[in-house]
Structures are given as structure tokens and as C-alpha cells.
């Protein structure tokens, strides 16, 4: 409602001489490190899981922001604008780093546990003790959500780096599969396997760590 009110007022103000304050202004770059440094570093660290790489990404973000200062259109807040730049820098880091990724990785807890029967007439089906338990249908309350993210963070940290990076590109940045394959130079089949492992791990980890203890009433 309020939006339509302001839009109708715009034409009248456009006739008056331009007000300088309308021009989007960035804050003084010398304050950027204190304002956004930690925030951007956290964002990068979450994805890259490597402190020097995260620092590099933040540094490159600030330098790119300095260069692109004039192009800042003010469509988003300064912070959002910087996060937008950082996202590209993180992808660059992934691209640089891909040579180090190997496909032979340590197995995940759910894989060591073995969720599925290996032989017998039911081979390939869930082990009775590993069948997914009921999670309840009610939406999460705010407190449950806080608890959920705490456990999620814990489970996410347990993912090996490469799985975590693929998962965050896919599910957090919501990048298309084909683009991720290009950036990380992996085949699509490989991508599916990696994402499947990450999802299986997260689901099992959440089930064991969070739901079993937090919501006994749902069982």
C-alpha cells in the first residue's frame, strides 16, 4: 500500500531540481574492513572452510568493490552488494582449488554405519534399526528452528570440504547443476553422487542428533 503511495509522488518531485542525496553513496572505504570484514569472512569461511582462502576472498572482494565503486547503483544495501561480489570471489576460489579435490575421500558416518542391508533376500533395503523415523508434520516453532540450525551447522561441519562446497553451491547459492560442473570440472554423474552423499549424511545426522532428542513427542 505504502509503495503505491510513494510511486505516485515521484513524478512531482522529478520536476524539482535533483536532490544530491538521491545519488547512491557508498560509505568511506577505509571503514569497510571494520564494518563488513568479519561478516564477509564468516560467509566465506562457511563455504571455503579454509581460513587463508576465506581471507583471500574477502580481500579480493574489497579490492573489486573499490574498483567498482562508481557502478554501485544503490539498488541494494552496501552489505548486500558486497556479498554479491564475494559470491563470485568464492566461486573463483573453488575454481582455483579444484585441482586439489580428490574423489577418494574418507567415508561419512552414515556410510560406515551402513544404512542398507548388504545381503540376504532384502539386500539393498533399509536395515530395520536404520529406517527413517517419524519427524512429525507440524511446522517448526522458532525455538525448534534455532535448535535445528545449531545441529545443522554441526552436521554441515562434519561434511568433507569437497562435499560441503558442492552442497553449498547447489543448495545455498542455488546454482544450476551444469554451472557447478563447469566451475568444479566434474561430471554430472559425479555431482549427483556427491549431492546424494551430502544429503544422506545431513538427514541421518539431523535424525540422530536433533530429532531423536528434541522431539520425542513426535515419535
Amino acid at each position: 500500500m505504502r509503495v503505491s503511495g510513494t510511486t505516485t509522488q515521484i513524478p512531482s518531485s522529478m520536476n524539482t531540481p535533483a536532490i544530491p542525496s538521491v545519488v547512491p553513496q557508498l560509505s568511506d572505504p577505509s571503514g569497510w574492513v571494520d564494518l563488513y570484514g568479519d561478516y564477509l569472512y564468516n560467509y566465506a569461511l562457511m563455504r571455503l572452510k579454509d581460513a587463508p582462502m576465506a581471507e583471500d576472498a574477502v580481500q579480493e572482494t574489497f579490492l573489486a568493490a573499490l574498483k567498482a565503486r562508481q557502478t554501485f547503483a544503490g539498488r541494494s544495501s552496501e552489505k548486500t552488494w558486497m556479498v554479491g561480489i564475494l559470491k563470485h570471489k568464492i566461486i573463483d576460489q573453488f575454481r582455483k582449488n579444484k585441482r586439489e579435490s580428490t574423489y577418494t575421500e574418507e567415508s561419512l558416518p552414515f556410510e560406515r554405519e551402513g544404512l542398507f542391508l548388504e545381503d540376504g533376500e532384502w539386500a539393498g533395503h533399509w536395515k530395520p534399526q536404520c529406517k527413517p523415523t517419524a519427524w512429525g508434520d507440524t511446522p517448526l516453532t522458532t525455538i525448534e528452528q534455532q535448535e535445528f540450525w545449531k545441529v545443522f551447522q554441526h552436521c554441515f561441519d562434519k561434511l568433507p570440504d569437497r562435499l560441503a562446497s558442492v552442497f553449498s553451491l547447489r543448495e545455498l547459492e542455488e546454482m544450476e547443476s551444469a554451472d557447478i560442473c563447469k566451475v568444479l570440472e566434474i561430471t554430472e554423474t559425479n555431482l549427483w553422487v556427491v549431492l546424494h552423499r551430502a544429503r544422506m549424511h545431513l538427514r541421518r545426522c539431523l535424525e540422530v542428533k536433533w530429532l531423536s532428542s528434541a522431539t520425542p513427542a513426535n515419535k
Binding site: S30, D38, Y41, A51, E55
Partner: peptide
């Protein structure tokens, strides 16, 4: 996960050394 709102404390902060280096660069 990606961003932290103001109430949630950040999980990690820049080291003093890194902060200094970044400020110098800028």
C-alpha cells in the same frame, strides 16, 4: 548459514593480522 543476522554471534572473526593486512590493502 550463509549470512548471520545481527543477533547471532559470528562464528569466526578475522585475525588481527588479517584485519591489518586488509586495511593496508584497501
Amino acid at each position: 548459514v550463509h549470512t548471520h543476522d545481527e543477533e547471532t554471534p559470528l562464528r569466526a572473526t578475522l585475525s588481527d593480522e588479517a584485519r591489518k593486512r586488509l586495511k593496508n590493502e584497501v
